[in-house]
Design a protein around this nucleic acid. Structure first.
Lengths: 250, 250
DNA sequence: CTCAATTTGTGAATCGCATTCATAATACGC
DNA sequence: GCGTATTATGAATGCGATTCACAAATTGAG
């Protein structure tokens, strides 16, 4: 009987409906005012039905995060399959990350929120695993580029694993996102165009690793040209105001 | 009348009592189960009195964060006043940050939690300012070292401001803390001794900046020796198991 | 097709907890 | 002392998340 298979499909569709609806609510009203009952009602289901899919509100939040993350896969694919020097591919990955973050602002704050003990602990084990697995493609994309770089001699691993060699770039991206999202911090410190600084710092780090070919990150024009080139080659369809060469109004 | 002054002192003391008690509760029970009524009761005050100090539960959380942060000031002072090459002072700052984080695990997660939109927005304007100002000493410590390095010729600023030149180290520290605190992430990826990697990455970055004197971060022995030296010179009184040279049991 | 068993959906009732606010207690000026 | 202003109190309120007794629907055996 194909009944079971059909039912499973229906359940999955309903779950996605809940997830999409909840995400829409967050985008409109903020994380703060997400109401379980409202999500259910807007999907024409009872509150209890929502709870058959998600163990708690927090569980739903993790599910939203994992779901939205899938929209990132396409970006990762573009960077990894691009025919370019490995160093440029890593930068492309970082730029993709920046573009995704700025195009999905909720995803950023959600990401920081769900890894909070309070939220993480209130989600189901299964959902946590799902979230951790959502990182696999990122991890694989980065390590595959590192491995390719080692193979072609652009990078000397000094006996370290590919995973470990991705930590520097990974932590810098994550930390910079956090700093940028800490409202008021950069405006207090008068830091301008933080994403350009992220890219500069990534290059400084890659230079420290002697990842070939080296680039002078204090040559701002060259830096911006590289960004433009990567965006136009790989992400012509994505809005990139966050990286634009234009200075913001004073 | 000195009455007013005395009253102000009493109010400040009571506020600190609330903060300390709430922190103790979090350490014992977790952020999740902090109860406003319980905090008030344990301090022998009514719930309403607590609310005369803090606009909301979230407001209290920001206050705890700002308060705990002050315990860090002493560590910053040691690093900045240390008589050593500027590059070593920066590393000392990073090590101090690591030691503080591992000795105050709640502070870390609290820090990530309060900058969440949901929490940040629910705190009073005044308290937010207080939290942002809590970063001033960190910022000043880092920029003063950068400025000293520029002055003595150990670092070429390439026309960038001291504040901007601290962003790389800052974001790497913050990002690594986030990655480490994301429960299950590093155990899934089998990353060992992440703090050693943070220090290695900091050195790679500093090498990329040509901050003198350069150091080979893949010389693990030398790296560990530097850590030991800094800990023994500056932080002999702090527990540093997180940085210990010992390998963890397999 | 029928019907009992089982599964799934429902939403009103429950519960926990942050927050408020009418009242009581206290401090202050005279 | 006494009236007024300030501060403390904790029971009452309100808001949702979560649950659960019951209803509806599905299944499968005969």
């Amino acid at each position: 009987m194909g009944t079971k298979r059909r039912r499973l499909r229906e359940l999955a569709a309903r779950e996605q409906l809940f997830i999409d609806t909840a995400l829409a609510h967050i985008q409109e009203e903020g994380l703060l005012s997400l109401k379980m009952a409202k999500v259910a009602r807007d999907c024409d289901y009872a509150t209890g039905t929502l709870y058959q899919h998600f163990a708690s509100k927090e569980d739903l939040l993790l599910a939203i995060f994992a779901s939205e993350n899938e929209k990132n896969l396409e970006i990762l694919r573009r960077a990894t399959t691009w025919d370019a020097p490995t160093r440029q591919k890593i930068v492309a990955l970082v730029i993709g990350d920046i573009l995704f973050s700025t195009n999905h602002p909720v995803h950023q704050s959600l990401g920081r929120y769900i890894f909070t003990d309070a939220v993480w602990d209130a989600a189901s084990e299964q959902r946590r695993t799902q979230v951790l697995e959502a990182y696999t493609p990122h991890h694989e994309a980065a390590t595959s580029i590192v491995e390719e770089a080692i193979e072609c001699g652009a990078l000397d691993p000094h006996g370290q694993s590919a995973t470990e060699l991705t930590l520097g770039v990974w932590s810098m991206c994550m930390g910079m996102h956090s700093l940028i999202d800490a409202e008021g911090l950069f405006s207090t410190l008068a830091v301008q165009r933080p994403y350009r600084w992220l890219l500069r710092n990534i290059h400084l780090y890659l230079n420290g690793l002697h990842w070939q070919p080296l680039l002078d990150p204090f040559n701002t024009q060259k830096l911006d040209e590289e960004v433009d080139h990567i965006v136009q080659s790989l992400y012509p369809d994505l809005c990139f105001s966050s990286l634009s060469t234009e200075e913001p109004p004073p």
